[in-house]
């Protein structure tokens, strides 16, 4: 896992790098959960996401938007995602626990994921991500 929060005036900007797209998406997911709920997250309850999109950016945006939706309506805080991408199709297995106000109230609500500041690039070492969460 490797991501860091970069200074951004209005919102939350994250940079990540990973050897594969699967790991990059998983890092972006972890960053999202960390921003929203803080570091104390456990597993035990499972959800699955499957979707397709026209390119990597759209795929990531749709994936994280779906995570926001499930997390909110099911009241779940996730610790980990196993992501498998094949072409422009993604399947992700999420592992989490019910929201606990005492342990998960240390973050900021993320309102949405847009293309604003979203870039996925690739070089010899793997993939790099720049993303902004609208908070």
């Amino acid at each position: 896992m490797s991501f860091e929060e970069i200074s951004h005036t209005a919102d939350v900007r994250i940079q990540a790098q990973a050897p594969t797209r699967n790991e990059l998406f998983s890092d972006a997911f972890t960053a999202l959960m960390q921003v929203m709920y803080g570091p104390d997250r456990k597993g035990g309850q499972h959800r699955e996401i499957a979707l397709s999109a026209e390119d990597d950016e759209a795929l990531l945006r749709d994936f994280l938007s779906e995570v926001l939706f499930i997390s909110e309506v099911d009241g779940l805080v996730f610790v980990q995602a196993t992501v498998m991408i094949d072409g422009h199709t993604l399947v992700a297995h999420l592992d989490g626990e019910p929201f606990d106000r005492n342990r998960h109230s240390f973050g900021t609500e993320v309102k949405g994921i847009s293309y604003s500041g979203l870039a996925i690039t690739r070089d010899a070492n793997g993939y790099m991500l720049d993303i902004v969460f609208d908070v």
Binding site: E5, H8, T9, V12, T108, V135
Partner: peptide
């Protein structure tokens, strides 16, 4: 007012 300092900062 509009922010001038990031949340991380």
């Amino acid at each position: 007012a509009g922010r001038i300092m990031s949340r991380s900062q």
